[in-house]
Design a protein around this nucleic acid. Structure first.
Length: 144
DNA sequence: TAGGCCATCTGGTCCT
DNA sequence: AGGACCAGATGGCCTA
């Protein structure tokens, strides 16, 4: 990795000592280089987030998701796509998934909520009535 | 103006 | 020893 480039990219030449600050754990120059590496690493993470954002449909289309929204919606989107594969239904796949796949597709639904003999019926009822987070966020699959 | 989100700095820990 | 990774602290920006 070209750290001289990284440093130059963000704050100018390394020999610009006005940018060097004291640190309890590291000499100024090493601290400065560590900061530059951390910035570079953070930017790499952000690039990955941006790439992921491009893969997730949103409503409206130009809405920019926050990082936490991107992660949550990506997770739901994966479940949504799995439901499509499972049901072959492109419009309301998450409504028709089986109880087992429904349970795995809807982590918000806790197993201990459905304890007892009627667990299966509750799961089936859940599968009939629940819309996944992705469907809610994008209005995808919700009949009007 | 408060709250959410983000970038940056920093120190600690783990790994090579 | 040095770099990668992580989490906490801090301050700036934006929006309701």
């Amino acid at each position: 990795m070209d750290y001289e480039f990284v440093v130059g990219e963000f704050y100018g030449a390394l020999e610009d000592t006005s940018l060097l600050t004291t640190s309890a754990s590291l000499p100024a120059k090493q601290r400065y280089q560590a900061n530059a590496r951390e910035r570079y690493r953070t930017h790499s993470v952000n690039s990955a987030f941006n790439t992921l954002r491009l893969l997730i449909p949103t409503e409206p289309k130009n809405r920019k998701l926050s990082k936490i929204e991107t992660l949550r919606l990506a997770k739901s989107y994966i479940s949504h796509l799995a439901a499509i594969l499972l049901t072959g239904n492109y419009n309301q796949p998450c409504v028709y998934v089986t109880s087992l796949s429904c349970h795995s597709s809807f982590p918000d639904y806790q197993l201990d909520e459905a304890g007892g003999e009627d667990e299966g019926e509750k799961l089936m009822e859940h599968s009939r009535t629940s819309i996944c987070t992705f469907c809610v966020a994008t209005k995808n699959g919700i009949s009007s």
